[in-house]
Every structure is written in structure tokens, then in C-alpha cells.
């Protein structure tokens, strides 16, 4: 999955999980729900680290969430998590803020996409 070009990325690419887990829809839904919970918790942590200006922690948490975002096919989320990793590595507070806001919107998008597919 190339997450460098935002225009070509999907909010939720269903093919990713089908290629990983096959056609077991209940299993797929289960993992999606787990991701939404994980994303909510991670986003809160990232926001808290941002307030404390703990860039290293922001980077680590973004990297952590990026793994599951990619695994469930949340490509746009993965994109902003990568951007957030880069911005936190560069200690760029303003960019971090932008990417956290974008990430928050993308997670909401994944939530909506998951709800419509139930």
C-alpha cells in the first residue's frame, strides 16, 4: 500500500482486509470495531502528548496506530499518521496540530464507512 498520494487513497479500502482475512465478514467487522476503539484511545493520547509537546511520544503512538490503520484498509488515516510521524520527528508543532485535526476527521470518516457497511 503506497500512502504517499492522498488523492488516490480511500477512507476504507475493503480489499485490504479481504486479501488478508478472506471473506469472513463477521471477523472483518470485528477487527474494524477493534480499530475504531483503538483509534479513539490513540487519538486521545496523541492530543495529550501534543499539549505536553512530547514529540517522541506523538511519533511512537502515530506509528503504532498506523499499523492497524493500514491493516484494516484505512488508507487516509494511515496517510495522516505518516504525516504526523514526520512532523513530530521534525518537532513541527503547527504541522502536528494540522495533521491531528485531519486524522480526527479521517477516523470519523472510517466510523461512518463502517456504519454504512454493517
Amino acid at each position: 500500500m503506497d500512502i504517499s498520494n492522498l488523492d488516490r487513497l480511500q477512507v476504507l479500502n475493503e480489499q485490504v482486509m479481504h486479501e488478508l482475512l478472506g471473506d469472513d465478514e463477521s471477523e472483518i467487522n470485528n477487527f474494524r470495531q477493534q480499530f475504531l476503539q483503538q483509534a479513539k484511545s490513540s487519538l486521545q493520547k496523541i492530543a495529550s502528548f501534543y499539549r505536553e509537546q512530547q514529540f517522541k511520544q506523538i511519533k511512537d503512538e502515530a506509528h503504532y496506530l498506523k499499523t492497524s490503520a493500514k491493516a484494516i484498509g484505512a488508507e487516509r488515516c494511515a496517510y495522516y499518521l505518516q504525516q504526523l510521524e514526520d512532523a513530530s520527528l521534525a518537532l513541527d508543532k503547527a504541522q502536528c496540530k494540522n495533521h491531528i485535526q485531519s486524522l480526527s476527521n479521517e477516523i470519523k470518516g472510517v466510523f461512518r464507512a463502517c456504519s454504512t457497511q454493517k
Partner: peptide
């Protein structure tokens, strides 16, 4: 793997 979702997958 530290990410439990991917680990479980």
C-alpha cells in the same frame, strides 16, 4: 508485534 489488531490478524 506490539499492535494487538495486526498481531491478532
Amino acid at each position: 508485534e506490539d499492535n494487538e489488531i495486526y498481531r491478532e490478524m
